[in-house]
Simulated scan of single mutants.
Amino acid sequence: MEFDGRVDEPDKKTLRRGLLAARDRLPDEDLRSAGRALAARALELPELAGARTVAAYVSVGSEPGTGALLDALRARGARVLLPALLPDNDLDWGEYTGPASLAQVRHSGKMELFEPSGAKLGPDAVTGADVVLLPGLAVDARGLRLGRGGGSYDRVLARLERAGARPRLVVLLYDTEVVARVPAEEHDRPVHAVVTPSGVRRFA
């Protein structure tokens, strides 16, 4: 049975499991074409056109691909920051200067991630970003994002709030991952927009 995004409000674990299973069924060619389309759509965003610093991430596995987007942002002259996972699930940041600046890192009990191999800039580096591109599994009509459950980006969003930073928050997803509603908690904060291979949706 395919997951179609039409849910009332299941628990987060059930929803995550269905979304991840749907991603894992995507053929490789669909993953590649979705990554190209996602980059094209994201590059149309006015926020990215004027951004001097963008905090982004390297997609892994069946996540919507970010490789083409990272290189296009650098070609535009933007400074691109990428996360490095810390032992407590917080995120440090380093600068992306091309594929050669990435190292494949295996964290205990987690998938292998591609992280910046150069100097680390500290967790607060994200507060200088004009746009933060967020991974996720779904976003709902309120702009609330469902992540994988590790809490890393909840910490990032809390850090931005404490610093008084106001970057534009954009989540990158597949079309079927824009759903009616995701389970929300008091600390959850809405994103400003979602980019999918077919377009952009903004939230108030």
Rank of each mutant, 00 (worst) to 15 (best):
G151E: 06
G150C: 13
R148S: 09
D140V: 04
S62V: 05
Q104V: 12
G65I: 02
L82M: 11
P87A: 03
F114E: 07
V126T: 12
T97F: 01
G164S: 10
A129W: 00
L81V: 11
L157M: 08
Y153K: 08
G122T: 14
Y174P: 11
V156I: 13
P83S: 06
G149M: 07
E161N: 10
R159S: 06
G94I: 12
A129G: 01
E63P: 10
R162Q: 06
Q104S: 14
E95T: 01
V139W: 07
R106Q: 13
A163D: 13
G98P: 01
L91A: 02
V139A: 13
V170A: 08
G98N: 00
D130G: 06
V139T: 05
R76W: 05
G77M: 11
A163M: 13
D140H: 12
A138L: 01
R181P: 00
D124N: 11
L137V: 03
R159I: 11
R74I: 08
D71C: 15
F114Q: 12
R142S: 14
M111G: 04
V126G: 03
A125W: 14
T97V: 01
A84R: 15
D124I: 15
L70Y: 10
V171P: 13
G136I: 00
T176N: 08
W93Q: 01
R142N: 09
A56C: 03
